[in-house]
């Protein structure tokens, strides 16, 4: 029991760490719970949903104070999203745990490929802008040398 609680806490830290960096910790938390603690898929999803609430509430308060939340976007997206999420939660109860794991696996692969592609594009852009800065600096140095 004690050992299990330690594993739960470590998994929480890992999921929270990725989530705190804004990369979707839930997509890590759920599979870790299934693979390392033999938690049922449904329960793992419930745990993730609940664990997300206190952390994101704190983050949200900080973001609102920093005036980073665009409230005009919230209503138009939150209303349909909340409705659909309640319906989907009811639907997922009717799906067998093993089947739900399979669908979740496919979902993860798609998200992973998307994340990989966008992360690589971001890295390339960053490198290019750094090279751009460097070549601008090189040119400036050259022109300065000529003036000497």
């Amino acid at each position: 029991m004690f050992f299990k609680i330690i594993v739960f806490i470590i998994i929480g830290i890992a999921g929270g760490f990725i989530g705190g960096m804004g990369m979707g910790g839930g997509t890590l938390l759920i599979p870790l719970l299934i693979l390392f603690t033999q938690t049922d898929q449904h329960l793992a999803q419930a745990v993730n949903l609940i664990a997300f609430i206190p952390m994101s509430a704190v983050a949200l308060i900080i973001h609102i104070r920093n005036k980073l939340v665009e409230f005009r976007h919230v209503l138009i997206t939150a209303l349909p999203a909340v409705t659909a999420s309640v319906l989907a939660s009811l639907l997922s109860k009717r799906v067998e745990g093993a089947d739900l794991s399979l669908y979740f696996g496919i979902f993860l692969m798609c998200l992973g490929v998307y994340q990989l592609v966008s992360a690589i594009i971001a890295l390339i852009k960053k490198k290019k802008s750094q090279e751009g800065k460097q070549s601008a600096e090189n040119k400036r140095e050259l022109s300065e040398n000529r003036q000497d």
């Binding site: 806490i9 929480g12 999921g15 929270g16 705190g20 449904h42 999803q45 664990a51």
Partner: peptide
């Protein structure tokens, strides 16, 4: 729907808050 378990919810949430702050 009946998917809840005190031990996992409390320990994972606690870890999540610590990890989230660190991240």
């Amino acid at each position: 729907n009946g998917y809840f378990d005190w031990t996992s919810v409390l320990s994972v949430s606690g870890g999540c808050i610590a990890g989230g702050a660190a991240g």
